[in-house]
Design a protein around this nucleic acid. Sequence first.
DNA 1: AGCGTAATAGCCAAGTTTGACTAAACCGTG
DNA 2: CACGGTTTAGTCAAACTTGGCTATTACGCT
Lengths: 203, 203
Amino acid sequence: MMILGLVRWMQPVHGYDVRRELLSWSADKWANIQPGSIYHALRKLTEEGLLRAVATEQVGARPARTTYEVTVKGEDEFETLLRNSWWTISEPPDPFVAAFSFLPAMPRDEAAAALRNRANQLRAGIESMRASLESDWVRNRKPAHVGWMFELWSARAEAEMGWCERIAERIDSGVSYLPAELDEAQGWSGWKDGAEPPDTDAE
Amino acid sequence: MMILGLVRWMQPVHGYDVRRELLSWSADKWANIQPGSIYHALRKLTEEGLLRAVATEQVGARPARTTYEVTVKGEDEFETLLRNSWWTISEPPDPFVAAFSFLPAMPRDEAAAALRNRANQLRAGIESMRASLESDWVRNRKPAHVGWMFELWSARAEAEMGWCERIAERIDSGVSYLPAELDEAQGWSGWKDGAEPPDTDAE
DNA sequence: AGCGTAATAGCCAAGTTTGACTAAACCGTG
DNA sequence: CACGGTTTAGTCAAACTTGGCTATTACGCT
């Protein structure tokens, strides 16, 4: 729950503020938070005693807004949570890896093309990150470590770019996907270039 | 829903088979699937007409098991889903990035130490992946593209390793986190080395 | 002034995910 | 052969997430 961290950083805040902040970081992308979940999270954190509802103002006939603050217990909890995320490593789930594991279901030429396309998209992403790194907006108005996060994304993307091109090459070269042991059999084509694998009982 | 893909690949299967396969790929790590969700997914896919329940056998008094197959519609849907994942890029959510965005809340020395520790963990991960790449088990019994996935993870990890060390250096060097514009103010220390940021109203 | 669009705030029902739980059958081993 | 542990197979209630909805006020434009 990194919402706790946001509240801690912006307190006192009401839900909509948090929502806006997350939106401006387009945090729905790299965090796991859709706007709908915020209010539930705030209420849950409150009932766990990590937050405290500080006030409920109302302007005109608009919906009332509740303002929150972090309690001492919340401060503690955030500290352990944060420390935990910093010290332990955890493979985040990646839809592309999942898709890649179905490589044999893709026609070879499409797979190679898609990988090259991915490399290009990555390159474009890096480019635009470099650009905003140079831009005054990030250089002057944003804390330095925001730029550092961009560097991390760039570094990862660059590595992946190289990989995409290497693998596209290999796929084009026509090497078999089969485990070395049964490389004499000829199965495993995709739905495009032939019948289904003749039940090789792999694994 | 990449469960569909698994069923397509292993059909005919029952839920527990899928669960075992996912477990053996330790897919709860890099995919988004805990064993509990499988049965719900199967039922949902069935009622959407993408799967078809093929039989419900029962051995002795053990729980009955239902076997599924992919329908033609399911085949189609899988094709579009898969193609979509191959051609479009999507930043997966990464808890570390989220944690890193709270850098100013960490004491400098701990942050640097954690980053160096992370670099080491990454190095160890790469090492063990290299090892299993060399191992006969992967080289002979597993399809080639499984090894290629390992290469992707390695490449990303290597890039991240470098980044960790660079950033640790910077943090040690004591550069300010503040946006260049207000670098004369002195706020923003963590909970460890001082008071909270004096409400710089950043963004 | 009038009117359409956007922003403000948050709620909520419907859908999903999850970890804990059953309960029989198989395995091996002293 | 008895009996403890693992494997098989799946269910379920509780928690969580989500996208859509409401209803008011502010803003921009002619």
